[in-house]
Amino acid sequence: MASLLRKLIVVDDDPVDVRFVMRAFSDAGSPIEITHVADAEVASDRLATEAFDYILLDINMPGTNGMDLLKRLRGRTRTAVTPVIMLSSSSNTSDVNSAYENGANAYAVKPSTLSGYRDFAEGFTRFWVDVAVSP
């Protein structure tokens, strides 16, 4: 596993899902520092001024949704190529296609168990941290 600490921002309004994500990455021993933001507008402001290595983004949130935030992020120089992984409860084909059309690097459906979240965190770390070359 890479020793360099990476920064991940999790944009999701569901506190239970966020706890699962944070616990799973911790259990996986990932070299990732996680910042949680529950609101897309707050996330947009943070991402305008702060650098993150990865963005984990939910679609369904009140106010500005994840898809709108994704479009905004892809239009900014600072976040145009930052890896964005959509993590949503939706497995709807139109959501999946829309996410990729708008610049998502990956799309995953939220697991239903903590062990599913652990598998996600381990897979995320193996690919995004250990294998992929970041911009």
Score class of each variant (00 low, 15 high):
67 M>F: 05
10 V>P: 00
88 S>C: 05
101 E>S: 10
104 A>I: 02
116 G>H: 01
13 D>I: 12
90 S>D: 04
6 R>H: 10
7 K>T: 12
79 T>N: 04
11 V>Q: 03
107 Y>K: 08
112 S>L: 15
89 S>F: 06
28 A>Q: 04
89 S>D: 11
2 A>K: 12
32 I>E: 00
76 R>L: 13
72 R>N: 13
56 L>F: 02
5 L>S: 15
92 N>C: 08
109 V>L: 05
127 F>N: 05
82 T>R: 04
38 A>T: 07
96 V>D: 10
111 P>A: 06
53 D>A: 11
29 G>E: 06
115 S>G: 10
13 D>Q: 06
97 N>L: 13
72 R>I: 15
57 L>A: 04
10 V>K: 02
79 T>R: 00
90 S>Y: 03
46 R>I: 14
129 V>L: 10
29 G>Y: 00
90 S>T: 06
56 L>V: 07
117 Y>F: 12
100 Y>Q: 07
128 W>L: 15
131 V>W: 10
117 Y>P: 03
51 A>R: 09
128 W>Q: 07
10 V>A: 11
30 S>N: 06
122 E>H: 10
2 A>M: 11
78 R>A: 12
116 G>Y: 00
88 S>H: 00
107 Y>M: 07
72 R>T: 14
55 I>L: 07
92 N>P: 07
44 S>A: 14
50 E>Y: 01
57 L>Q: 02
106 A>N: 12
111 P>N: 06
59 I>K: 03
91 S>R: 11
119 D>H: 11
127 F>Q: 07
93 T>H: 08
83 P>G: 01
80 A>R: 12
91 S>E: 13
112 S>G: 15
26 S>R: 14
24 A>L: 04
61 M>L: 13
26 S>T: 15
79 T>Y: 03
16 V>S: 11
83 P>H: 01
13 D>M: 06
41 E>V: 13
91 S>F: 05
105 N>F: 03
110 K>M: 07
47 L>Y: 00
8 L>N: 02
104 A>W: 03
65 N>S: 09
106 A>W: 03
60 N>R: 09
23 R>S: 12
94 S>D: 14
84 V>E: 05
112 S>F: 10
12 D>V: 06
35 T>E: 14
28 A>V: 11
123 G>E: 03
17 D>P: 01
94 S>F: 07
19 R>K: 12
84 V>F: 01
49 T>L: 13
36 H>K: 04
105 N>S: 12
68 D>K: 11
13 D>G: 07
66 G>W: 04
133 V>Q: 12
134 S>M: 13
85 I>M: 07
44 S>L: 12
12 D>A: 07
113 T>C: 02
42 V>D: 05
129 V>I: 15
55 I>M: 05
67 M>P: 06
96 V>M: 09
128 W>N: 08
24 A>N: 01
80 A>G: 10
22 M>H: 09
108 A>K: 11
3 S>C: 11
87 L>P: 08
118 R>N: 13
19 R>S: 13
65 N>M: 08
8 L>Q: 00
122 E>A: 15
2 A>D: 14
97 N>H: 13
2 A>C: 12
129 V>G: 01
118 R>V: 15
